[in-house]
Nucleic acid binder design. Structure first.
Lengths: 112, 112
DNA sequence: TTACAGCCTCCTCCTAAGGGGAGAGTCAAG
DNA sequence: CTTGACTCTCCCCTTAGGAGGAGGCTGTAA
């Protein structure tokens, strides 16, 4: 499928998909004539990228973790990364709890 | 005191202090000659801004919440805001918990 | 053949929160 | 008088993740 359909299938904008290619996050797709042509494999990866973004994972983190063997995505290293990411999220909860403490102190210092 | 001392007193950079003035977050300080001159009031506000930033509050949020009566900072509206912000942080914890759920689902969908 | 949707590349712009540095003025001390 | 430490304004640059649009091909359906 061409990029317009890929965009609809994944919910990513056309601009975003081209951007991911530009920064090397996805491999250069095949071309039919001058048009980018995407296959199911490509769509799967784009959907993963979209979901990861919603989890707050940055593109540069993804770039480190999306690797290829013979042009095929190495999904197992992505699984490992997701497990680490879970720990990260738990740490973020701790950080927020610390902020709540700070905020309460800050609140009490303002006394008018 | 001049801006260099204000910077040391607050822990904010000189650039940051001038920037806050530029965006209207703080009022234009008095000048002695061409030099900005800060008083204790100004320092108090700058310290609040610094602490708020550490809590993840953005400058534009602060801009909405820092108001003046006769050139004096309206601290009570800041207190109200901090109370709301506490709720925000609690919501963020919920959001992160949702992300953890999403991440777990995502993890399970990758099965190699 | 022609209309028109879709695609191409390239360029500029945006937010957030300043940082770096140029070039110039100023102030006090030696 | 000069030196050194401060300060001033002005302008460009940064990261992240694209958005918007210009100008120009391409492909296909009537």
């Amino acid at each position: 499928m061409y990029i317009g359909e890929a965009s609809k299938r994944t919910g990513l904008s056309i601009k975003a998909i081209r951007f991911y290619e530009e920064i090397g996050l996805i491999q250069n797709p095949d071309r039919i004539g001058k048009y980018r042509f995407y296959k199911e494999n490509d769509i799967e990866l784009l959907i993963l990228i979209k979901e990861a973004k919603e989890l707050g994972i940055t593109l540069s983190q993804l770039k480190d973790v999306i690797t290829y063997n013979d042009d095929k995505v190495n999904w197992s290293s992505i699984k490992v990364f997701l497990a680490k990411q879970r720990v990260q999220l738990l740490n973020q909860i701790d950080d927020i709890n610390k902020k709540i403490d700070m905020l309460n102190k800050c609140y009490d210092q303002i006394h008018p």
